[in-house]
Design a protein around this nucleic acid. Structure first.
Length: 949
RNA sequence: GCGAGGGUAGCCAAGCAUGGCCAAAGGCGCAGGACUUAAGAUCCUGUCACGUAGGUGUCCGAGGGUUCAAAUCCCUUCCCUCGCACCA
């Protein structure tokens, strides 16, 4: 027997699989199909151990299904849509040091790097790299189906999909506000900062820009709390600031320069035509929106030109900032005098507008007193106060009587209505801003911009939503919790923009080619396309021939093959074959992806299938996996931080890593990567290796433990199947790699050495290893002269050999031995002689009757006392305990009753003697035997009495 | 805020749906031993507390409740993690 040497045998088998085209997949009408995919990766860098978790799960299931007789389709692809590829290419072209280091650390050669300065180069390089890693992990993917979303054939498919969506009335255009870079167009603002160099945590603020009539102009003030307009008492401006006068349509609005610039991206024809100093406005009045009252403009120091419009409308009842600014102003004689505001300010008092549950109707005052905030300079604590008041008011507040039509309405509801009313009357307009500075990767500012004619997919469509929800409930979804919430997610799922302007990788929008279809929208139906891609990859037709009629025929069964052949120039036979492949493989059985897809990809994946394809082709299952993390954070492709896979694979072996994924945690929890653990799995495989070799080499005869092993093995086999059928990968791996070996070890310990049996079970066992550790399994399969274990079938469970009685015997023996061990550990005895007293037969009789007529309870005493010659006290005492036991665990009690304890103990006496290095005497408790410590009365069925000297 | 998922012995992690041999699987770590000796090896035993007899006590974030019986069901409470849409 050789030692387990994963590295060399893994290389060997990967080469063999490659050469023999092991995972080539073809339609076979005699077999049930099983179609499984993982959500293909976006191209943004190398794969890491986190991705591999998901891909390996997919492979476990694909391999298992294959070995249970399914014809499995397991393709893969890559997803370069978006701008990551472009930005990476740009950084390579610039010679960005971090990028260079990252590439080199992952094994890119100078020659590789030279080709990486163009998007095409990046896509080709990484697509190859992904395929290499997948092969390196032993994934049983058929790469003849490979595609990527930048290819022209893929674009033909996507254009078809969008035509279908349009035909179904599911596309629409409407204005949209999004973060945009002035150079690059729309960008994603999120913590991973894929598109950004700064500001990933910024949030989009949806302001209401209020207009205050100010002579012939309007002063503008942006608020996040439009419902507080009823409490406006004044405006705050910075006397030292110059404000822009902006021409908007025919009106002139006053705001900070920064605000004017931002507004320019959100409205047409915004033009700065002059300036006005803050000082100039102070002391004058402006007509506030909604309340239509003149309120004064007052000086304040806390206004910020970069926030909102740079001018603040003051609601001292509800805004701590305003309250304290007002108080300070009233106390500042010098300032009042300077601007001549003494009289004016006297009349400015907070106006209660909201009754917020915990804070009353003047919450700003109350919280400032409570928190003892001294001045408007205490920004940090004022922020906190503002937050607290806002929460309390928003969630538990009601509008007071002063608020016109909104009196008595919950704040939550009033907020949107008041905003709408003011926008309707022209007193306000929407204004979007980011909560902090955001800089694009290209270096320029990111601002909120208006896209007036943004394309959306109408996921809010009631019929589509309903159909999707109904279907979702029938799907096989893991974990269950996600299955339960998916219908709610579909309900909540709103229209989603599906195309963008600018320079991106992707498919041109078929209705208007200035748009590029964006990354989520072009990745929903792609499992259907893999099937077509194989034929395209074989050169059977060109992208240009993949017309609407072509896809209608293949995916929807519309039209006649001959006609489609005529219009596309693809021959009829090929068309029929592609159509047949699609109908054979579809629907998709399982789609696996990380938890980030739960509210993004999976809903659109499902809804597009439901919208476009026949109901028999709707997807059947989804499995979500959680992340592999490293020291707290998610491993990020673009930011690095992960060990390159080849290094790790070289150190532990692929099979050890695969077992690590399968067994170290449930798929539905985040798992912290720990290489000591990986090493332990490496050791475990060494153990399995030796165990299998031993099974194959032992060559003894039959013994009494054979039937136990056969029964237990089949029971565990059954359990493995049932776990795998439920995609309970961890549980299945636990049975195969821990429970089964433990039973085999027990068998050996008991002296089992039946060569024929071990040979037969060993062969099955090796096949069971294969879905998890395919390299090792194929290597071990050579012991049985199996060419490729991974192409074998795992045999069915042999129900006949499963026997509770047979297994009960071994369990009984283990229990007795545990008891002996327990006694030895606490008793102060030499342990040279062990006496075991088997229960008297009357107790068995009691047990039997109690089991049969449990409902009679202690009433059984009358019949028992007549039947048995036992003192009533002992009889009732025992009956009481046994009734208790039956209630607790009937199965165990039944097992005990079925045991022939005397026979078992006598047969296995020598085994016990060997284990404890002691002399063992077995007695029947009802006989008059050696019993110096008066133990034998304690004997009960299944629990013999023990005395050790 | 909205939505989801968690808190189990030194650590990781099962169990919780269908309450009952659950003091609670398994792994790691640790301790003792065996074996041989330098290997991140392998094997055995132990690892909540107490206990010279297989037992008893306490225990599954905290506090209540239901029940003959609760890690499991219900209520309250504290804490943690994650997703929230143009990033895949």
């Amino acid at each position: 027997m050789n030692d387990y040497d994963p590295q060399s045998l893994e290389r060997k088998w990967q080469r063999i699989w490659e050469e023999s085209e092991s995972y080539r997949t073809m339609v076979d009408e005699d077999k049930k199909s099983f179609y499984i995919i993982f959500a293909y990766p976006g191209i943004s860098g190398y794969l890491h151990l986190g991705h591999m978790r998901c891909y390996t799960y997919t492979d476990f299931i694909a391999r298992y299904k294959r070995m249970r007789g399914y014809n499995v389709l397991f393709p893969a692809g890559a997803h370069p849509t978006g701008n990551q590829v472009i930005s990476l290419a740009k950084r390579v072209a610039e010679g960005d040091r971090n990028v260079m280091e990252y590439l080199r650390a992952n094994g890119a050669t100078d020659e590789d790097i030279r080709q990486l300065d163009s998007p095409k180069g990046i896509i080709d390089y990484f697509a190859k790299s992904y395929i290499k890693e997948w092969k390196n992990f032993g994934l049983s993917i058929d790469f003849s189906y490979f595609t990527d979303t930048s290819r022209e054939d893929y674009s033909s498919f996507i254009r078809w999909q969008f035509k279908k969506l349009n035909d179904l009335g599911l596309l629409t255009q409407k204005p949209y506000y999004a973060p945009v870079c002035k150079n690059c167009g729309p960008v994603a603002v999120d913590p991973s900062e894929t598109d950004l160099s700064k500001g990933g945590t910024a949030e989009v603020q949806e302001y209401t820009l209020l207009k205050f009539k100010f002579g012939s102009r309007y002063i503008t003030a942006a608020t996040l709390r439009p419902e507080t307009v009823y409490g406006q008492t004044n405006l705050w401006v910075d006397p030292h600031e110059d404000y822009a006068v902006v021409k908007v349509d025919d009106e002139e609005w006053i705001m900070s320069d920064a605000a004017a610039r931002k507004l320019g991206y959100q409205m047409d024809d915004v033009e700065v035509i002059g300036h006005i100093s803050g000082r100039e406005m102070i002391g004058k009045g402006a007509v506030a929106p909604m309340i239509h009252r003149q309120i004064p403009v007052l000086p304040a120091g806390f206004t910020d030109p970069d926030m909102g419009s740079g001018i603040v409308t003051s609601v001292p009842s509800d805004a701590p900032y305003d309250w304290i600014a007002l108080k300070e102003l009233k106390e500042n004689r010098a300032l009042l005098e300077e601007y001549g505001l003494e009289e004016l300010v006297k009349e400015v008092e907070p106006v209660p507008i909201i009754d917020s549950k915990d804070w009353g109707s003047n919450p700003a005052e109350r919280i400032i007193l409570e928190m003892d905030i001294g001045s408007q300079g205490d920004v940090e604590r004022l922020e906190e106060a503002t937050q607290r008041i806002y929460r309390a008011g928003f969630h538990a507040g009601t509008m007071l009587g002063i608020c016109g039509d909104y009196a008595g309405m919950p704040v939550q509801e009033a907020k949107d209505k008041i905003r709408e009313e003011m926008m309707g009357s022209g007193e306000a307009t929407p204004f979007y801003d980011l909560s902090e500075e955001v800089i694009c990767r290209c270096g320029s500012d990111v601002v909120m911009g208006k896209i007036p004619d943004q394309w959306f997919i109408r996921y809010s469509d009631p019929e589509l939503t309903e159909k999707s929800k109904v279907h979702a409930r029938t799907m096989n979804i893991r974990p269950d919790t996600y299955g339960r919430t998916l219908p709610d997610i579909l309900e909540w799922f709103q229209d989603r923009s599906c195309a963008r302007l600018g320079n991106w990788i992707g498919t041109r929008f078929p209705l208007d080619d200035k748009w590029i279809i964006e990354a989520i929208a072009d990745s929903t139906l792609y499992p259907a396309y893999y099937i077509v891609a194989r034929h395209y990859n074989l050169g059977r037709f060109e992208a240009g021939q993949m017309t609407e009629a072509f896809f209608d025929f293949v995916f929807l069964g519309k039209g006649e093959a001959d006609e489609v052949a005529g219009s596309t120039g693809i021959d009829t036979e090929t068309l029929l074959e592609v159509r047949r492949d699609f109908t054979y493989w579809y629907p998709l059985d399982l789609n696996l992806g990380g938890k980030e897809h739960m509210t993004v990809h999976f809903p659109v994946f499902l809804m597009n299938h439901v919208a476009i394809l026949d109901d028999k082709n709707w997807p059947q299952g989804i499995m979500v996996n959680w992340y592999l993390t490293m020291t707290g954070g998610k491993i990020s492709k673009s930011k690095g931080g992960a060990d390159p896979i080849p290094d790790v694979a070289e150190r532990f072996g692929i099979d050890a890593l695969r077992l690590y994924y399968a067994h170290s945690a449930s798929p539905f929890v985040d798992k912290e990567w720990d290489e000591r653990e990986a090493f332990n799995y490496r050791k475990r495989l060494g153990f399995i290796w030796r165990l299998v070799n031993r099974m194959r080499s032992v060559d003894g005869g039959e013994s009494s433990v054979d039937d136990f092993l056969e029964s237990r093995f089949n029971r565990l086999l059954e359990r493995t199947f049932s776990f795998m059928d439920d995609y309970e990968i961890r549980k299945a791996a636990n049975v195969v790699f821990y429970d089964m070996p433990a039973e085999l070890e027990w068998y050996f310990k008991r002296g089992g050495e039946n060569g024929a049996l071990l040979d037969r079970l060993g062969e099955t066992f090796v096949k069971l290893l294969s879905p998890f550790t395919p390299h090792m399994a194929d290597e071990l399969g050579e012991l049985w002269d199996i060419k490729y274990v991974s192409e074998e079938l795992i045999p069915d469970v042999d129900e006949v050999v499963i026997s509770d009685e047979v297994e009960g015997r071994e369990e009984y023996l283990r229990d007795v031995m545990d008891d002996i061990r327990n006694i030895l550990s606490i008793a102060d005895v030499s342990g040279d002689v062990i006496h075991i007293y088997v229960s008297p037969s009357w107790k068995k009789k009691v047990l039997e009757i109690a089991l049969a007529e449990t409902e009679k309870g202690m009433g059984l005493m009358s019949v028992l006392s007549k039947m048995l010659d036992v003192p009533p006290k002992r009889l009732s005492g025992y009956l009481r305990t046994i009734l208790e036991d039956i209630k607790k665990n009937r199965d165990t009690v039944e097992r005990d009753l079925a045991l022939d304890e005397m026979k078992i103990l006598q047969e296995d006496k020598s085994f016990i003697e060997r284990e404890f290095e002691a002399e063992v005497n077995v007695h029947l408790a009802s006989e008059d035997v050696y019993d110096p410590a008066d133990r034998k009365d304690k004997a009960a069925p299944g629990k013999p009495a023990i005395y050790i000297e």
